[in-house]
Simulated scan of single mutants.
Amino acid sequence: MTFDKTVVVPLDLDQTFALITQPERLRRWQTVAARVDLRAGGEYRWTVTPGHHATGSFTEIEPGRRLAFTWGWEQNKDMAASDSVVTLTLEPVDGGTSVRLTHAGLAEQQEAGHAEGWNHYLDRLVAAATAGDAGADPWAAAPDPINELTAADTTLAVLQRVLRSVTPAGLETQTPCADYNAGQLLDHVAGSISGIGQALGVQVSDDATKAPEARIADLAQPVLEAFYRRGLEGTVDMGFAELPATMVASILNLEFLVHAWDFSKALGTDLTVADALTDYVEVLAQQTISEQVRAGGSFAPARQVAETAGSLERLVAFTGRAVHAGA
């Protein structure tokens, strides 16, 4: 079975090729996170939606013209990376570039699901090419099934979307965290991700000169990839203590989602998060933030909220933040 569809985007060949190959551009329409080694035989790993990771290797690369790669799902043993091949062919047309995508080698039972997926993402490719960003992907709003790692994929997506709007001037803006402006909070989040990565044995390199979204994305992708390889069993040596792996993953969720709220408040931007996600992260917070942790100064005392408070408001209030000005 082969899926075959062509769309036209309002970009030239080189711009279109960048949109389908560069991690920072892929995050605008197709992926939550992406690792790309763009050379013949080079491997890629894309977090397409939380908990669903496409993997394979590039077989053909003709910049601005053609890209082919094997396709499989990391968590699906029935569909290995070499079982099917995706080919994208670019041609100049009036008003832009035609992008023909074929996905060959699909079993009959795989074709319908992959057709639905490619139709969804090709629509988002056109939207990203037209507007610069396709917007939040509804398929990535809440993971199913949900656990500490699939939730971390999702909360990372939330944080990245907020960080895309951070300008150099915005880094000087005060956040709800009294000790941090936006730039200092960004350093804190980067340091937390780096520390967890080092505990997992990941060689991390933090480049503070990158744009905020790219900086956090480039740190978080290898850390979460390593966490998926490791799994949630046992403990992780954090240097200061041996912590359950589930707790370390919970810390990532809190870093991503709670600080996404901090950044959104500092910048005056809207933050929309699925209740299923915030409900789950609230449970993780309750399991992670003990009175002993609060006493150490990492979190202020929990705040009271109205019975009518939304899920996200309850979560941030539990972490000690004033949900409303003057609260």
Rank of each mutant, 00 (worst) to 15 (best):
T6E: 08
T6R: 12
V7N: 05
L11M: 01
D14F: 02
Q15A: 15
Q22P: 09
L26F: 11
R27K: 10
W29D: 04
Q30G: 13
Q30N: 14
A34H: 02
E43M: 07
W46L: 15
T47G: 11
P50Y: 04
H52G: 13
I61D: 05
G64A: 05
R65P: 02
L67C: 04
A68V: 09
F69P: 03
W71H: 10
Q75W: 03
D78E: 14
S82Y: 07
D83C: 10
V86K: 03
T89F: 01
T89Q: 04
L90P: 03
V93Y: 00
V93N: 01
D94K: 00
D94F: 02
G96K: 02
G96E: 01
T97C: 08
T97D: 01
T97M: 02
V99K: 00
A104H: 05
E108S: 15
E108I: 10
E111D: 12
G117Q: 03
W118L: 05
N119W: 04
N119L: 10
Y121C: 06
R124E: 01
V126D: 01
V126A: 07
A128K: 02
D133S: 11
A134N: 05
A136E: 06
D137L: 11
A140R: 06
A141P: 09
P145A: 11
I146Y: 05
L149H: 02
T150A: 13
A151W: 05
T155A: 07
V158D: 04
Q160F: 10
V162T: 13
L163S: 05
S165I: 00
P168F: 01
P168C: 00
E172M: 00
T173M: 03
Q174Y: 05
T175G: 10
A178Q: 11
D179N: 14
Y180F: 15
Y180W: 14
G183I: 04
D187C: 09
D187L: 08
H188G: 07
H188F: 10
A190C: 13
S194C: 05
I196K: 07
Q198W: 04
V202N: 05
D206A: 14
D206C: 13
T209K: 04
E213H: 10
R215E: 03
A217R: 03
P222H: 00
E225G: 15
A226F: 00
F227N: 00
R229P: 07
R229W: 00
G239D: 05
P244K: 08
T246K: 12
T246R: 12
A249L: 05
L252I: 15
L254E: 02
E255H: 03
E255A: 06
V258H: 07
S264F: 02
A266G: 13
T269C: 09
L271H: 08
L271I: 10
T278K: 01
D279T: 15
Y280N: 01
Y280Q: 09
L284I: 08
L284Q: 15
Q287K: 13
Q287G: 15
Q292H: 06
F299G: 08
E307R: 10
E307L: 12
T308P: 09
T308H: 09
A309I: 00
S311M: 03
L312E: 04
V316M: 07
A317K: 03
G320Q: 09
A322L: 02
H324W: 12
A327E: 11
